[in-house]
Design a protein around this nucleic acid. Structure first.
Length: 468
RNA sequence: GGCCCGUUCGUCUAGUGGUUAGGACAUCUGGUUUUCAUCCAGGCAACAGGAGUUCGAUUCUCCUACGGGCUACCA
């Protein structure tokens, strides 16, 4: 395997979601695996939709995920700048060269005209295709339009009747006929480059030798190859990975379960959980070992990338989150939960509380539930819990209270005595006690809970239960 | 419409011209815990359909269906 220089090049028109992130991750894994480099480039050629806040968010998100780039925004690199909007002078030189060689030509057909033409072609059952009216226009005609002040777009003169083939490292040999393709636009009316152009040129200029991207780009590849060939630029290898879809099989969107990286962070996901999940969707890792980026890269294998699309599965994401939580120390979890434990009573040490609940939580929200149930919410806030307590009757809790008072320090003895005195056992014994003390039906072992709460709080709860 | 990609348990997937088609997540059941959770054990569950090649096809070929992409002065 050569040392791959891979890249991730999002357009800053929105927040990063799991689909983008997976592409970025795969690129990073490939770079690490091959002892190569990973670069980040911001494709902000669409002035309308690109926003600085999004490019900043993309960088923040990737940094948070630990997907570090060796060249790109914030750190620069030998091919500065890494924002396409700042590379216009570079593109200009190529446009001039292409124009000189008659490889691109100005086209004055307006957007509206094109739409009408396309619609008519469709209606006539023909493929919508650029008719090429300006492909062979005379110099005079072009001059005339220019003098009128018309601003053209520039189209790339695609070689006629040619088959363009390339080998996709995952999908194998691919071939396309140029006859099925249009002379695509490389420069917009506002003089900015199109994706098809800037993306291909920059990859080559930046020394990118492998393009790993979504399958939605598969049919863009022959166009980009034709362009690079015309310019005598190096052509990278290609890997097109099948799409990552929502739980309904449709493209990822908010409707069907897509989460932005920002949301993942807010929910409390650990980056490690996300990368362990993501590196296993559409890519086989034969075991379920929790790994770091380095470890994942060592088991990453292009041959194990699947050719069929995969759906997002939150259960599986949560499974990895659970694994990561289990692998963390109390101290690490404490700082993870930091901002969620503001309501913890002063006399309860944070680490002690975290130690208590850590085997029972996967997300911070659950820690908050325990905290609220144990210390904040009045007993009986949850209807089912209240019902059970009432059903057990106040005598049950009065007896319990007395036993707890007399035998504090030996919880298993306490439970035994309560069982004997009230004539209950198993679920009938433990559930009402758990419900009254914790305010919930499930949670950590009761002896540990009561130890952390202390006698005073436990007695208070039992008293409240008796009075409910 | 044209071009292209894809289709194995609910989900992520392994797999081979002859397998009881394997694993993981989810789910269900049982065991442990005098409770829930955890943990352990077990169960349910898949080769889209049709032709062809072949002694034999889930595996190879073709067709159909279904899903998806591109066909933008979006990327």
């Amino acid at each position: 395997m050569p040392a791959y220089k891979s890249r991730f090049c999002p357009s800053p028109t929105g927040l990063l979601h799991l689909g983008n992130l997976r592409t970025a991750l795969l690129n990073v894994l490939l770079a690490i695996k091959s002892r190569g480099t990973f670069i980040l480039r911001i494709e902000d050629t669409d002035a309308e939709r690109s926003k600085t806040e999004f490019s900043e968010a993309v960088c923040d998100d990737l940094e948070w995920m630990g997907l570090d780039w060796q060249e790109g925004p914030r750190i620069g690199g030998s091919q500065d700048p890494y924002y396409q909007s700042e590379r216009n002078s570079i593109y200009e030189a190529f446009y001039e060269k292409l124009l000189e060689q008659d490889l691109i030509y100005p086209c004055f057909t307006s957007d509206e005209e094109l739409k009408i033409i396309r619609r008519n072609q469709m209606a006539a059952g023909k493929p919508p295709r650029y008719t090429g009216v300006w492909a062979n226009a005379s110099k005079e005609d072009v001059k005339k339009e220019l003098e009128k002040g018309a601003q053209p777009v520039y189209r790339f003169r695609l070689p006629k009747d040619k088959t363009i083939t390339f080998k996709d490292l995952v999908k194998g040999e691919q071939s396309f006929h140029t006859g099925d393709l249009d002379d695509f636009i490389v420069r917009k009316k506002d003089l900015s480059p199109t994706f098809m152009f800037a993306n291909a040129i920059d990859d080559s200029l930046m020394g990118v030798n492998v393009v790993l991207r979504g399958e939605d780009h598969l049919s863009n590849t022959p166009r980009q190859i034709a362009l690079l060939e015309a310019l005598n630029l190096e052509i990278p290898e290609f890997i097109h990975v099948a799409l990552f879809t929502g739980d309904d099989g449709a493209p990822l969107s908010k409707r069907n379960g897509s989460l932005s990286v920002k949301e993942l962070r807010e929910i409390g996901y650990f980056p490690q959980a996300v990368i362990n999940y993501l590196s296993r969707v559409g890519h086989t890792i034969p075991d379920n070992e929790l790994r770091d980026l380095e470890g994942l890269s060592s088991v990453f294998n292009v041959d194990n990338i699947s050719t069929s699309p995969s759906r997002i599965d939150h259960d599986q994401l949560a499974f990895w989150q659970k694994n990561v939580v289990e692998s963390k120390s109390t101290e690490e979890l404490s700082s993870w939960l930091e901002s969620h434990l503001k309501n913890l009573p002063k006399d309860i040490e944070k680490d002690i509380f975290v130690e208590l609940i850590k085997d029972n939580i996967v997300f911070p929200v659950e820690a908050v539930e325990y905290l609220d149930g144990l210390f904040i919410n009045p007993l009986g806030s949850i209807k089912e819990v209240k019902d059970l307590i009432k059903q057990s009757g106040s005598d049950f809790f009065k007896i319990s209270e007395k036993i707890v008072k007399d035998n504090w320090g030996d919880w298993s003895k306490i439970m035994k005595l309560i069982g004997e005195e009230t004539g209950t056992k198993g679920k009938g014994l433990f559930m009402p006690i758990r419900a009254s003390i914790t305010g919930q039906f499930s949670g950590p072992e009761l002896d540990q809970v009561t130890e952390v709460l202390g006698q005073e709080r436990v007695l208070k709860r039992l008293k409240e239960a008796a009075a409910l």
